Computed example of a mutant assay.
Amino acid sequence: MRSTIPARGRVIAITGAARGIGAAIARELAAAGAHVALGDLDAAAAAETAAALPGTAAGFALDVTVDDSFTGFLDAVEARWGPIDVLINNAGVMWVGRFEDEPEAATRRQLAVNLHGVIRGVRLAAPRMRARGRGHLVTVASAASKLAPAGEATYAATKHGVYGYLSAVRAELHGSGVELSVVMPTVVDTPLAAGTSPGAVATLTPEDVARAVADVLARPRFEVTVPRRVGLLVRLANLLPDRPRTALYRRLVPNQITDSDPASRAGYERATLTDNPGEPR
């Protein structure tokens, strides 16, 4: 069921929005009447995606790994539409394979985009919102914020780091009028997840995540898992002793070393996980 988000007239900035989950979020919110800014390393693709959206949307150049680029993005959005009501940190990259085989460039890139990119976005946007006494910072993280699939060691580390960082910032912003939310989907059908296994749950669509983001904007809360039952299972599993908990996780959580298809991921990883990538997601 479509959310009745009170988005009309709100200024919403989204990182990694040219394609995939970010583009689906932009489409959902633009259709609801928001002014939507699509930031992406591929500025031309962001502009093309924005041009096809209903309502008011525009594409902007954004490299979430560079302070000046992120600041310039926020400034450009505010110059166009006024103060940003919502920042959605969505840009992310993932390398899959045995931890000892991960190239150093892939490790650096995941830390720079997935973790430091979120830290940078919050650090730059939150003070603007706190000064006005309102705002909402939403981060599209992953179920890997709470779980750690084999074959996703660094990716899971970045998502665990994001969860911890946002938890601490939330405590600091308590009472400021600024909301924080972390949305944690399982495997989503995007190039980032190409060739990976969803494990015991069905693969999500980008639109599933977009609806979850729209819902959390309408009903702010800190944690959102998609699908919701995964969050419940994680909480229940954490009540178990180590041995049965480990056995349960082995049944539910995919092993991306044995269950993924490296050939299907090769193009994505070449394009995104070098020191000079073509696009973040």
Rank of each mutant, 00 (worst) to 15 (best):
G133E: 11
G133R: 13
G133P: 12
R134A: 13
G135M: 05
G135C: 09
G135L: 11
H136C: 13
H136Q: 09
H136D: 11
H136R: 05
H136S: 10
H136I: 07
L137D: 11
L137A: 07
L137I: 15
V138Y: 07
T139P: 02
T139A: 14
V140D: 06
V140M: 04
V140W: 04
A141M: 03
A141T: 06
A141Q: 02
S142H: 04
S142K: 08
A143P: 05
A143Y: 12
A143F: 11
A143M: 15
A144H: 05
A144W: 10
A144Y: 06
S145D: 15
S145R: 11
S145M: 15
K146T: 04
L147T: 07
A148S: 15
A148H: 14
A148M: 15
P149H: 13
P149S: 15
P149F: 14
P149E: 12
A150D: 07
A150R: 10
A150K: 10
G151M: 13
G151R: 13
G151E: 05
G151Q: 10
A153F: 05
A153Q: 02
A153D: 03
A153G: 09
A153W: 05
T154E: 10
T154M: 15
T154R: 15
T154K: 11
T154N: 15
T154C: 08
Y155P: 08
Y155V: 07
A156Q: 08
A157R: 08
A157D: 00
T158Q: 12
T158W: 12
K159W: 03
H160F: 14
H160V: 03
G161W: 00
G161F: 03
G161Q: 00
G161C: 10
G161P: 07
V162A: 11
Y163Q: 12
Y163L: 13
Y163P: 00
G164F: 09
G164Q: 02
Y165G: 04
Y165L: 11
S167V: 04
A168N: 11
A168G: 14
A168T: 13
A168I: 07
V169N: 05
V169T: 07
V169P: 02
R170Q: 04
R170M: 01
R170D: 02
A171M: 06
A171R: 05
A171H: 03
A171F: 00
E172W: 01
E172K: 03
E172L: 00
E172C: 02
L173K: 00
L173A: 14
H174E: 10
H174V: 01
G175P: 00
G175V: 07
G175D: 04
G175K: 09
S176W: 04
S176E: 03
S176L: 08
G177A: 08
V178Q: 02
V178F: 00
V178G: 02
V178E: 06
E179K: 01
L180R: 00
S181R: 05
S181A: 14
V182L: 06
V182E: 12
V182P: 09
V182G: 03
V183Q: 03
V183E: 06
V183L: 01
M184H: 13
M184T: 06
M184Y: 13
P185W: 03
P185F: 01
P185D: 05
T186R: 07
V187H: 08
V187A: 14
V187M: 13
V187G: 01
